[in-house]
Design a protein around this nucleic acid. Structure first.
Lengths: 123, 123
DNA sequence: ATAAACCATGGAGTTCAGTCAACGGTTATG
DNA sequence: CATAACCGTTGACTGAACTCCATGGTTTAT
């Protein structure tokens, strides 16, 4: 599919998609039409982009994602220690989750305090 | 306490602390020593900075935090609808947590796949 | 009392993650 | 076939969140 459709279906802008491709997070088919040089993406790129969105929201950087995508593709076969990298990222995300839960409690407590203050205040 | 100690005890750089103060996230005592103009922070600023760290890691921006801190301090008393703001942020953080959990599963699955591939590979 | 260590301010510089603009070629539509 | 809608590339630009630097004053340890 072409970049416009991909953009629409993932809610990610064309520019951002091209930016991700330049960074190596996604790849378009290497042999496009002979007459133009339009990018052509497989259906699966939608899934990849969804994954990237999740990962970004979970605190992963694009540099992290570049390595991660490489692991997904090659699944072993390099000198690079993918398992250690993944384990580190797992721990990072676990910390982020714990941390966010804690902060969530603070937010909730603040909201409750605010509501209580409002009640004794207005009437 | 002075900024250096605060920096050490929170693992946040002096520059960042001053930056946060300029943004209104924290405040130093308004009447410092008469002989110098060093910032002087109460013990509680450590807790505030820890909260800020949590919040940042949970995806809150500094602009969000500015509003949130104001809510914490004033606890009602403005035209601003703090409860709605807080409810929105609660939902945002909840989404972030759900999302991060999902991504965490992906990371774990990838690590397992990598380990399996490595086994059938080497020996 | 003097050097090392600390503090302040203002402003410039950096990194990350996009985003926009200008220009020209391609494809789809009435 | 005109023309709107789409695509490509290059490079400049933005906003967020720091980070660094230069300059100069203050405190502390020796």
């Amino acid at each position: 599919m072409r970049i416009g459709e991909l953009a629409k279906r993932t809610s990610i802008s064309r520019d951002t998609i091209r930016f991700y491709e330049k960074k190596g997070l996604i790849a378009s088919l290497s042999e496009p039409s002979p007459t133009n040089n339009y990018r052509d993406y497989p259906e699966s790129t939608i899934l990849t982009l969804d994954l990237i969105k999740e990962a970004r929201a979970a605190g992963m950087t694009i540099a992290d994602l570049t390595i991660f995508m490489e692991q997904l593709e090659t699944l072993s076969g390099s000198e690079f220690d993918g398992e250690t990298f993944l384990q580190q990222k797992i721990e990072e995300v676990e910390r982020t989750i714990q941390n966010s839960k804690k902060f969530l409690e603070t937010l909730k407590a603040t909201k409750i305090a605010l509501a209580a203050a409002a009640k004794t205040d207005a009437p």
